[in-house]
């Protein structure tokens, strides 16, 4: 995935079944952000793979004051990349069988 300066990782091991996964997001390279970033640490949240969109979560982070509006896109993309990888892994495990 492209280096966006924002790192997103699983906060707990993915069991491959739950729609809601726990993710952890933090800024690795503040220089890649356009707006002012509130240096608060890692943000942990749950993400529903079926009902939610990465951009929606990014917007909520902006509204909560973690990121500037101009960085919603880069945060959303970072979450989207990680979510795509998790979905890909799940599909691969399903097709590989037990």
């Amino acid at each position: 995935a492209e280096d966006t300066g924002v790192r997103v990782e699983l906060a707990e091991e993915d069991d491959g079944k739950k729609a809601a996964i726990a993710l952890k997001l933090w800024v690795e390279d503040p220089k890649k952000l356009k707006g002012k970033y509130k240096e608060s640490g890692a943000i942990e949240f749950t993400f529903d793979l079926e009902k939610e969109t990465p951009e929606g979560v990014a917007q909520e982070m902006v509204e909560s004051g973690f990121f500037h509006e101009s960085d919603a896109k880069i945060v959303g993309k970072s979450i989207r990349d990680r979510v795509a990888l998790i979905k890909w892994r799940r599909e691969r495990n399903v097709s590989a069988g037990p």
């Binding site: 690795e28 890692a42 942990e44 949240f45 909520e60 909560s64």
Partner: peptide, 26 residues
């Protein structure tokens, strides 16, 4: 220590310190 932020949509964000080992060297 972790802090919690609950958005108007009901989402909960838990903020915790990033382990130094996981930060890129500046």
């Amino acid at each position: 220590s972790a802090a919690q932020v609950v958005t108007s949509a009901g989402r909960r964000f838990i903020v915790s310190p990033v382990p130094e080992s996981r930060l890129k060297e500046q």
